[in-house]
Design a protein around this nucleic acid. Structure first.
Lengths: 329, 329
DNA sequence: TTTAAATGTGTAAACGGTTACATACAAGAA
DNA sequence: TTCTTGTATGTAACCGTTTACACATTTAAA
C-alpha cells in the first residue's frame, strides 16, 4: 500500500500538499494538483482511514446493534439504515446483542474503541445506562426513549387498530397475546389492544408469552386452543406468533377466517406469503431504518433537528386471515 | 477517554510498561502490574483500537459482504459468521453489494482502508479480479472458486436429489426452473437436476428466470401455468420462487401435492411455515457461515488448512408439497 | 569472583495521516 | 515605494498505541 509520503515523493511535493489536494483544503496550484493527482493514480493510492481516524478522533464508521438479524423484522431495518448511511460514505460496524446486556456492552465498547461516530441501537434491554456518558450521538430504533433520539412505530395505536378491526369484523371471543414483558414495543401494542377491547363489549382472554421464537410460539398456540377452544379471534404479539397460531388452527381443521380470525403485527415479508396470507399491522421497517439513519447523520453533523422522537405510522394490512368487513353492519 | 499516557502517569511508570501489562508481553514485576491494573480500573481505561491498528497494520475487524441481507437466506449465514468470529474477538464491517460490481469494489476498498484482517464474501459477481492482489485472506461463501478458499453447499447434488425425489414420487410432466445465469449456485443446482431428469424417462420443460425477487417470481409462476398447464411437478430454483409457484397453484385451485408437487431449494426459515409446508433441499446456512468464519480465522492465523474448499452436504427435507413415496413402487 | 543470563523498566521512533505555523512570492492598495 | 492581502508550499508536531533498543539490577552458573 502506497502512503501519502510515497505520493509526495512521486509528485515532488510535501505531504501537506498531497493532503491538501486529498481533502480539497487550502491553496494548491492547478499544475501541482495535477501532478499530485497523477502520482496518486500511478501508485494506486488510497488514504488509510485508520490513520485519519486516529488523528481526527472520528471515523466514517457507525455502529449498528440489533437484537438478532435472524428475526425477519430486522433485515429490513438494517437495509434501511445501510442504504441511507451509505449515501454519505458511512460504513457499518455490526453486531447482534441477543438482548443480552453483556454482549450489548461488549459491542458498545468496541464501537467506541473503533472511533465510531454514531450508534443506532435496536436493543430493548433495560440498562440504557450503557449509553449514558457516550460522547457520540445514539439513536434508538424500534424503541422509545425519553433521554435519547428515537425512531419507532406507534405500537399502541397499532394494537388499538388491530383490536378495532377484529371486532369490526365480528370476532366475539378474542384471545389477546401479550408479548415478552421486557420488550417495550410488544407491551405498547398489547396496551393499545387491551384498552380498545376493554372499551368494547366483547369477551376476551389475555395470554402471556415470553419470546418471539417460532418454536415457543407453537407451544403457546397449542395451549391457546386447548384452554380457549371457542376463541374466534386472535390478536398476536407479532407475525411469527401469528404464523404459529395460523398453523395450529389449520392443523385443527378450523376454517380461516370463517371460524377464527387472526391479526399479526410487523408485516414481515413472509406474512404475505402464508396461506391464507396474514392480515397484520404493518410497521414500515425499511423506512424506520432510513429515518434513524437520517436522524443520526443530522446529529453527527450537529444540524438542528426539529424532532428527536420520530413516531412512524402503522397501518392495517387486510389480507386473508380476516373477513371482509360487513358493510351492512 | 483516558489514554495509555494517563494510565502511565497514574501508575507512576512509563507507557511501555503499561503496554506490556496490557499485552502480557515482556517482563513486568508483579507489584508494578498491580499498580498499573489499578490505574487502568481507576481511569476506566480501554485501549484505542485505532491507534493499535495503525501501528500493527492489522485490526480486529473483518469485512462481510453479502448480496442482500433482506433475502432470507443470508441472515442465517451472517449469524453463523458472527457467532464464530465473535468468539475470537473479531468484529464485523458489513455491507450489501446487491450483486453490483461497483458497490462491491467500493466496500472492498473501505474494508482495506480500515485494515480489516480478512474478508468473507458471498457475492456472485463474475469479477473475482476485485479480490486479486489483496494481501489479506478472503473466503468465498455460497460460491465456489478455484483460486480462493470457499465454503459452499453441494448444489449440483442438491439439484440431482430434488429431481430424483420428485420423480420417485410420481411426477410425470416436470417443469424445471433455471435460476439467474450469473448466480453460480443457481446454475449448479440446475445442472444437477437437468442431468438427473435427462437420465430418467420423464417429460420435462426448462423455464428460465432472471432474479430471485418474489415479485418477479409471481410473474413466472403465472407464465408457467399458462404455458405448461399440465405440469404436475415443479423444481424451483430456490424457496422464494417455490413459494410463488405454490401460491399460484393454490390460487388456480390445484390440490397440493395431489395435482402438483413442488420442491424448493435453500430451506429458508419460512418454508416450514407455509401451508402446505414446502418440501425443499436444505443448505445448512448457519453452519456454512460458521465454517467460513473458522476457515478465515485459520487463514488469518496462518495455521495450515487441510481443506481450502469446504463443500457442505445438502439434504432433502420432506414436507407437504410432495407426496409420500410409494413404497410398493 | 567473574560472567552470562534473566528480569524489570524507560526512551524514543515508528505507524500514516492532518494541520498549525512559518515562509515566500506576486499583485494590488496606499 | 511600502504595506497588505492572497496564493502556494513546506516543516514538524500530533493522534494513541507498540516495540526496538538501551540500561540497570538480580540471579545463576562457571
Amino acid at each position: 500500500m502506497a502512503t501519502i509520503r510515497d505520493v509526495a515523493k512521486e509528485a515532488g511535493v510535501s505531504v501537506a500538499t498531497v493532503s491538501r489536494v486529498l481533502n480539497e483544503t487550502g491553496y494548491v496550484h492547478a499544475d501541482t494538483r495535477k501532478r499530485v493527482t497523477e502520482a496518486m493514480k500511478n501508485l494506486n493510492y488510497s488514504p488509510n482511514e485508520v490513520a485519519r481516524s486516529l488523528y481526527k478522533k472520528k471515523s466514517k464508521l457507525i455502529g449498528l446493534l440489533l437484537p438478532d438479524i435472524t428475526n425477519p423484522f430486522f433485515p429490513q431495518l438494517a437495509r434501511g439504515v445501510e442504504d441511507e448511511l451509505q449515501k454519505d460514505g458511512y460504513r457499518i460496524l455490526f453486531g447482534n446483542s441477543d438482548e443480552n446486556a453483556e454482549k450489548e456492552l461488549d459491542y458498545l465498547n468496541t464501537f467506541i474503541q473503533n472511533n465510531v461516530v454514531g450508534i443506532i441501537s435496536a436493543t430493548n434491554n433495560k440498562s440504557k445506562t450503557n449509553y449514558d456518558g457516550l460522547s457520540i450521538p445514539v439513536v434508538f430504533l424500534d424503541r422509545t426513549s425519553s433521554d435519547y433520539p428515537s425512531v419507532y412505530a406507534d405500537g399502541k395505536e397499532g394494537g388499538r387498530i388491530a383490536a378495532e378491526e377484529i371486532v369490526k369484523r365480528g370476532s366475539k371471543r378474542i384471545t389477546l397475546l401479550k408479548g415478552p414483558a421486557h420488550i417495550q414495543p410488544a407491551q405498547d401494542r398489547f396496551q393499545g389492544a387491551l384498552e380498545e377491547l376493554s372499551r368494547s363489549d366483547i369477551d376476551f382472554h389475555v395470554m402471556s408469552t415470553t419470546s418471539f421464537a417460532f418454536e415457543d410460539a407453537v407451544k403457546w398456540a397449542k395451549e391457546l386452543f386447548s384452554m380457549y377452544p371457542d376463541t374466534d379471534g386472535v390478536l398476536a404479539s407479532n407475525d411469527i406468533v401469528a404464523t404459529a397460531i395460523l398453523h395450529e388452527a389449520l392443523r385443527l381443521g378450523k376454517a380461516i377466517p370463517k371460524d377464527i380470525q387472526i391479526i399479526g403485527f410487523d408485516d414481515i415479508p413472509q406474512s404475505s406469503l402464508l396461506f391464507p396470507s396474514l392480515s397484520t399491522i404493518r410497521q414500515p421497517a425499511y423506512e424506520m431504518g432510513k429515518e434513524a439513519a437520517q436522524l443520526l447523520i443530522k446529529l453527527i453533523n450537529k444540524q438542528s433537528v426539529h424532532q428527536q422522537h420520530i413516531q412512524m405510522p402503522v397501518t392495517f394490512i387486510e389480507r386473508h386471515t380476516t373477513r371482509k368487513v360487513d358493510t351492512n353492519g
